[in-house]
């Protein structure tokens, strides 16, 4: 790890101000990706602004038609939350299966979606649930937030404050895990809402995406058999030593079908 200036802040304003004064600053939330990267000397920010002390960013609130979860809420807190478990059990289950206990107790919702790892779980939930990402500047829809591999719509000095997840009628998340890392090789989140079904797929492609073709057939017939009609293109799929593009494309359909079945 290279030397850097460490800033402990108590408010979003102080965090943004510290970022403004830094040459090459980085916010750190749970640090579960950033700190290993720094330890391996693969990143060398001039300033690290620790959001751990910003209590406004932590918490889970049920606002009736949506769950609002603070950006610095840990995966473990989401998994253990009675509010989440009763309103969107699929989201609690997703959070409870990210990484290992150490990761879940440090890693945060905001950190995960700001990093936008192609194999992360949360992006699928944000997209499928039609969530809104709240920042210190604006609100961004889930569909617009994730822009590419490790890229988001966030600006340099923009900080996620919370994510608002509309409460669906029912939802399910099914993940096919990488046997080594246990990240998603393919993860599928399906939400049944009054406005129709939403399907989001993570892990398969460089950035999580909406499965519009699946949504179309499922809106007509919400059954796993209906999904057989959908062709999943191999072209956009990731390919690595764990799963070829062809295998990933196959798994997308299998996982969508299983998520449909899990929705009941």
């Amino acid at each position: 790890m290279y030397d850097f200036l460490y800033h402990k802040v108590n408010s979003v304003d102080d965090a943004v101000a510290a970022m403004g004064n830094a040459d090459d600053g980085k916010f750190v939330a749970g640090g579960q990706t950033m700190l290993p990267t720094m330890k391996h000397r693969l990143a060398s920010p001039s300033d690290v602004i620790d959001l751990g002390g910003v209590s406004d960013l932590v918490g889970i609130a049920n606002e009736g038609d949506a769950l609002v979860i603070g950006a610095m809420t840990t995966h473990a807190a989401v998994a253990a939350s009675a509010e989440v478990q009763s309103a969107i059990p699929a989201l609690a289950k997703l959070a409870g299966n990210i990484g290992d206990p150490a990761v879940r107790n440090r890693g945060t919702l905001g950190g995960s979606i700001a990093n936008n790892d192609p194999a992360a779980d949360y992006p699928a939930a944000v997209i499928a649930l039609g969530a809104t990402v709240k920042t210190n500047k604006r609100e961004i829809t889930g569909d617009d937030f994730f822009t590419g591999m490790f890229e988001t719509a966030l600006e340099e000095d923009e900080l996620i404050t919370a994510v608002s997840f509309p409460i669906p009628m029912t939802a399910a998340y099914i993940k096919f895990e990488n046997p080594a890392s246990r990240y998603a090789i393919v993860g599928v989140f399906i939400a049944k809402t009054v406005d129709g079904n939403r399907v989001a797929i993570t892990g398969a492609t460089p950035c999580a995406y909406r499965g519009m073709k699946f949504e179309k057939v499922l809106n007509e017939d919400f059954s796993s058999n209906a999904c057989d009609a959908v062709e999943v293109s191999v072209d956009r799929m990731n390919s690595d030593i764990h799963a070829s593009a062809e295998y990933r494309a196959h798994l997308v359909k299998v996982m969508v079908k299983r998520a449909v079945d899990a929705c009941g």
Binding site: N178, P179, A180, S181, Y183, I241, H242
Partner: peptide
């Protein structure tokens, strides 16, 4: 039998050099 496979690429880079890629 099921998980572990140490692999090098054609240039001799070890592509399973972490537990993210080498399955225990």
């Amino acid at each position: 039998a099921l998980l572990e496979g140490c692999r090098y690429d054609s240039e001799g880079q070890l592509i399973t050099a972490t537990y993210m890629d080498y399955a225990m």
